[in-house]
Amino acid sequence: MAEWLRPRHMNEALRLLAELPADHHQIISGGTDVMVAQQLRAPRDIAVWLDLSAIPELKMVEVTAEGIRIGAGVTLSVLRRHPEVQKHWPMLAASAAVTGAAPIQNRATLGGNLCNASPAADNAPVLLAYGARLEIAGPNGTRFLPYDQFHLGYRQTALAAHELLQAIHVPYLPGGSRAYYRKVGTRAAQAIAKVGIAAWIHFDAGQGIIAARFGLASVAATPCLLPRVSHYLEGNNLKHVCEFTIREKVSSDIKPVDDIRSTAEYRLEVASRLVWEAIHDAH
């Protein structure tokens, strides 16, 4: 019978992880993805489960001078209800509120949504747009990684074998920041995104764009930024932004595919339209 490890501290979790057999363990937190995979795939012999759901450190939300530190084990329902998140990072409250529905949000964790590394992860675009940093704990201590460097390929992350995602740091946004979030799914609730988009745009006193970041889901093998779009916008003025150029940049930044939920063509077109809308309607 499989062994179930349920550490109470991060240190204990890391120590256990270091000792686990490489291919025969499964890390679990909220379980909303892991349990589905276990149900659908051929029975895989998981010798050891490492359950992170009983570690209080992972459940903490702390507001600091720089921003907010969200423990990887914080559930989406905690996030969507959190007054500070609602006030300063409304896109994150919004994305948490459209990840599955209530029974999922009560279990699923922000860290789990990132580590599961689905290209459609609902909270990924927002964290990309906000410029989040990840706090990763490993046997040699803690390191910080910009979130945009976390997804290396389809369902591949920058976590090393003996590392765990500990917290997500989201910075305060400077004055003049505007944001835009939209999820396009087949139905209103309980949907997997066909396109997810979050944008953060920093304007100067005129309509000059100081900085712009776009996070997208379901348009490439991983959640992704739009570097060419950002590069085009930064230093530009809203008055001079050209729709055709935006489309061109979007299409070179993303690699949408046809799948069971939508088409590459739809994704490209809608992503382009929503980026354009984000630039003009972000607030």
Partner: peptide, 28 residues
């Protein structure tokens, strides 16, 4: 069996959850 329909919903510590997605190991 995959947390989509809610027919298996129960309350755990006052919150509605899908019992098909919860391993017993987390219920101590």
């Amino acid at each position: 069996g995959e947390g989509e329909c809610g027919a298996c919903a129960v309350l755990v510590n006052g919150q509605v959850v899908n019992s098909c997605l919860i391993p017993l190991g987390q219920m101590d």
